[in-house]
Computed example of a mutant assay.
Amino acid sequence: MATWLITGSSTGLGRALAEAVLARGDNAVVTARNTGSVGDLVTTYPGSALALELDVTDPGAVAEVVAQGESRFGGVDVLVNNAGYGYRAAVEEGDDEDVRRLFATNFFGPVALIKAVLPGMRQRRSGTIVNISSIGAKVCPPGSGYYAASKAALEGVSGSLRQELAPLGINVIAVEPGGFRTDFAGRSLTQSATVIDDYADTAGKRRKEHDTAHGNQPGDPVKAAQALITAAESDRPPALLMLGTDAVTAATAVLDGQLAEIDQWRELSVSTDLTD
């Protein structure tokens, strides 16, 4: 029996994962801004589910949630940083305060949770940290520059953290989902108030009023939850897990293009070395 701490458990992938781990007999600290949205999980699994209110941008609340989870279950074995939201804007259109709020939720919140669970994981010399990123971090679509940047920052931390923690028996997995049939492209998607007409054919096409993705995403959150459990329980978890055919296809195209461009510019790149 493992103990999971899952942020953003009220809907979507977080909710599917919470239901899956509880159904298999594991413990779960399920967090949401409003615990009423996860209260039914405690009703169904009173001995193994702990519902706690959490705004990941509040450091004090983060520390308290981890402390309560450890007190109730003896420790957190798997942290899943799932809470987050999208933001659409051309880079020039982005509001500074909007962007700070985005990074507070998508990057600094997960970092605070990581720091809060690591003392216990280090003491036990075991644990797994799962950071939910996005295929957007690799594809960098027009209109999603700030969102992609917040997720790329999370992946950068994940890569270094993985190497720091490997000798201590702690695993780190970054996850890049494609489009899943969740509320991400609906309620959880925000955008800038500023609209600049010159970006109508690029970033403008992906503003909420023009986006047709919501409700048509190809991914199944229930299957994604099972994939996350499989990866977290693996003897050799992946450093980066793609979720969805669309994510695998997009990532492959981006990486192939990057390798081709590196090769095309190789001569100029290596010409910058010092020579005797």
Score class of each variant (00 low, 15 high):
90 A>G: 15
119 P>K: 02
162 R>V: 12
98 D>F: 10
72 R>Q: 14
170 I>G: 07
89 A>K: 04
117 V>N: 03
88 R>Y: 05
147 Y>Q: 11
211 D>N: 15
40 D>W: 08
230 T>G: 01
237 P>I: 13
140 C>V: 15
213 A>K: 10
113 L>P: 03
117 V>G: 03
183 D>H: 07
179 G>E: 09
92 E>Y: 02
186 G>M: 07
247 A>W: 03
244 G>H: 03
16 A>H: 07
154 L>T: 04
88 R>V: 15
222 V>W: 03
270 V>N: 02
77 D>C: 12
11 T>E: 13
256 D>K: 13
64 E>Y: 00
65 V>M: 13
129 I>T: 01
114 I>S: 02
14 G>Q: 09
57 T>I: 02
148 A>Q: 03
94 G>D: 01
107 F>A: 05
4 W>F: 11
13 L>E: 08
50 L>T: 06
12 G>N: 09
88 R>N: 06
275 T>H: 14
167 P>A: 07
24 R>A: 15
147 Y>S: 12
105 T>S: 07
121 M>E: 02
32 A>Q: 06
176 E>M: 01
251 A>P: 00
85 Y>N: 07
176 E>L: 02
181 R>T: 03
230 T>N: 10
28 A>C: 15
204 G>T: 11
134 S>I: 09
57 T>E: 05
39 G>M: 09
264 Q>F: 03
66 V>L: 06
224 A>N: 08
172 V>I: 04
217 Q>T: 13
37 S>F: 08
199 Y>A: 10
163 Q>D: 11
274 L>S: 04
136 G>H: 03
57 T>K: 06
200 A>G: 02
43 T>N: 14
180 F>T: 00
115 K>Q: 14
160 S>E: 05
19 E>G: 02
31 T>N: 10
268 L>I: 11
221 P>T: 13
44 T>I: 14
72 R>P: 05
188 S>P: 00
235 D>K: 14
24 R>F: 05
88 R>A: 14
137 A>K: 05
60 G>A: 12
225 A>M: 09
185 A>N: 13
65 V>H: 12
98 D>M: 10
189 L>S: 12
179 G>I: 01
57 T>D: 02
125 R>P: 00
110 P>S: 08
33 R>Q: 12
135 I>Q: 08
196 I>W: 01
113 L>C: 04
108 F>P: 00
153 A>R: 04
141 P>L: 02
98 D>A: 10
173 I>L: 07
162 R>G: 11
49 A>T: 13
149 A>S: 15
42 V>R: 13
269 S>I: 10
80 V>H: 10
151 K>G: 06
239 A>F: 07
191 Q>E: 15
56 V>R: 09
199 Y>M: 09
33 R>G: 12
252 T>C: 00
127 G>A: 11
139 V>W: 00
212 T>E: 12
201 D>L: 13
24 R>V: 13
66 V>F: 06
145 G>W: 02
266 R>S: 11
105 T>R: 00
7 T>Y: 01
168 L>E: 12
200 A>R: 14
64 E>L: 05
87 Y>E: 06
107 F>S: 01
109 G>C: 03
114 I>M: 14
95 D>S: 07
150 S>Y: 09
51 A>S: 12
102 L>P: 04
27 N>M: 00
97 E>V: 13
120 G>T: 00
159 G>Q: 09
164 E>W: 08
143 G>R: 06
132 I>D: 01
250 A>T: 01
